[in-house]
Design a protein around this nucleic acid. Structure first.
Lengths: 343, 343
DNA sequence: TTGTAGGCGTTATCAC
DNA sequence: GTGATAACGCCTACAA
């Protein structure tokens, strides 16, 4: 009946050695200290008894938990599941486990989750939630907690991160629309307290300032979240201005979806009346009606590399912080065509 | 410099009481044992010092980790993120944390994850991966590990679970197609070693046997996974038979998407040539081209209730195992219309 | 190469 | 109501 799990002492007793010897054998890093014959005997017995080291106890002793925190702003945004999957696969291959939390796009949520994770003694953190000014990131740096940012960065680049070339992405999108003949282009931006929100917006502005097209204040809306609902609200605001335009650059795919809704509601159709581009090329946008022109990002790879960077960081926390910036690729689909009837 | 976190002894020293007393105060369940004045003083000091209990150490002592394992077959299937989110929200509100893993639709993966989670001393498990014959579920029952199944069940119903009324779902879909006038209906099923695969298939068969329409062997394909790729392969197989049909009932939405691809490739269009229904009403199917008729399931609620059931189970593991079965609702969209041109 | 001893932070159990 | 003690399972100087 007593279902107590075998512990290190049980194995030691059966192998007629001291628990510390078993401990050394069970830890690959210290295994070399023990003679070959004893090592083999202990490994055999341990496996026979179904012994498994308790990460809890060993973590308590060593201060490491082999647990990594992963905070995502919105798991229902289809861009994140592939990232999470890449992270999780990579971590578990290295003997780590991921504890996942969704901050629900809120900085307060992010903080609460961070505190809770910290109390679980996580060995490191992967954040997809970074804000330009982010107390959680600052705390990580201050406390020397290994951390990697994915997709978004902060204003103080003293952290390892893997992000996208947001400026290039917007350049590609706008150039594409310009080549199609569009000249009145609206912009649907994301929150300016995130790097993806600000940098994509700035890139759009810069292209206008370079004289490539004319930017009108009324044709620019900053949404307060990267969600369909916010995109809908933002686009509705633009439409109420009643200014002519033939294309919309949205700062991400969900905003573009909300944009579709607002256009439909105003009797406009995409792409006949208005062309739309998104950002991220999240799963299923190729199947939408219309299929969405977007900027492709290797999401799974983003996750894999974020996890790899974090593992490096944990092993050698003194190493220089690196910033990896991936170039997005424009994927042209049905939502962008030459301008026809002007709205 | 020494950034060591405050522990229970530090608090005790500052409050001039014994660590045990602090321990009693910090645990809501035992707080009543301590006098009001001491309780207040300790709480104040603890909060001043930023003291947080170490779940690791307390877990080591008590055998509970306040950690719940969550295994999902495929996180990139959009039906799961809302479920995961509901689970995570509910668990964290109760002081638990979720460790998430993706089994990648493989029973071997499920087993490996389970073992790894067990070694982390999880207090319970939520499985969305159940197979009809599932060793992991059997082990949970044998080891008295609290477990809740979501979405899928097993053949031995000795486990708490929250699932869908799959039979009703298929009845609704088929009835809908019959009412539209379809009589040659194909079926694209999921793996028969899962309850959702088998039960949806059986429901389809039963309706045919009841004489509501004629079921043809050649118009029935069982896919080996609930994925777009498998749906594409399955549907291609049906199309190669060259038998006339005007509608397809797919056992889930991803299969329906794969079905779209195969139809397109064969020059058939939905719904003009063939009507299609899905299952799960996962996010974004309302935006597809064509929008997909499907069976709606309250995904977030599924997650919330699964987590709630598990917490109940943890508190009172002796309680009777319950099966909750939710009725799906048919949502009619663009992919299903009366039959026009026969294929 | 292996054993010894002490401690990681907490709590159950017994005393007082 | 509070204090003392040991133990959860493991790791690591240090000693042998």
């Amino acid at each position: 009946m007593a279902k107590r799990k075998n512990n290190i002492k049980d194995v030691a007793a059966r192998a007629e050695v001291h628990p510390s010897t078993v401990s050394r054998v069970m830890n690959p890093a210290t295994r070399a200290m023990v003679s070959k014959s004893v090592t083999e005997r202990i490994l055999q017995i341990a496996s026979d008894m179904g012994y498994e080291r308790s990460p809890l106890a060993s973590g308590l002793r060593t201060g490491r938990s082999y647990t990594i925190g992963v905070i995502i702003p919105d798991l229902t945004n289809p861009m994140f599941p592939p990232i999470v999957r890449g992270i999780e696969r990579t971590l578990s291959a290295a003997g780590y486990i991921a504890i996942l939390a969704d901050s629900d796009n809120s900085q307060k949520g992010e903080r609460a989750i961070f505190d809770s994770m910290k109390s679980r003694h996580i060995d490191g953190l992967i954040l997809a939630t970074a804000h330009l000014e982010d107390p959680v990131v600052r705390d990580c740096v201050a406390e020397q907690m290994p951390v990697v940012l994915v997709n978004r960065t902060t204003d103080s680049h003293d952290v390892t991160e893997i992000i996208n070339n947001d400026e290039l992405g917007i350049q590609l999108a706008v150039s594409h629309l310009l080549e199609l003949g569009h000249r009145k282009i609206a912009f649907l931006g994301g929150p300016l307290d995130t790097s993806t929100g600000r940098d994509r917006y700035q890139a759009f502005q810069t292209m206008a300032e370079d004289g490539q097209f004319e930017m009108e204040a009324g044709l620019c809306a900053i949404c307060d979240a990267f969600t369909e609902a916010a995109g809908y609200t933002g686009m509705s605001g633009i439409l109420e201005q009643n200014r002519p335009f033939t294309a919309v650059v949205a700062a991400n795919d969900l905003l573009a979806l909300g944009c579709f809704d607002a256009l439909n509601e105003h009797g406009l159709s995409c792409p006949a009346d208005v062309s739309v581009t998104g950002f991220n090329d999240m799963p299923f946008v190729d199947r939408l009606s219309p299929s969405l022109t977007s900027l492709h990002i290797p999401l799974d790879e983003l996750g894999v590399r974020a996890a790899t960077l974090l593992l490096d960081e944990i092993r050698d926390s003194g190493s220089r912080k690196t910033t990896i910036r991936l170039d997005p690729e424009l994927v042209i689909r049905g939502s962008s065509t030459p301008p026809g009837n002007t709205a």
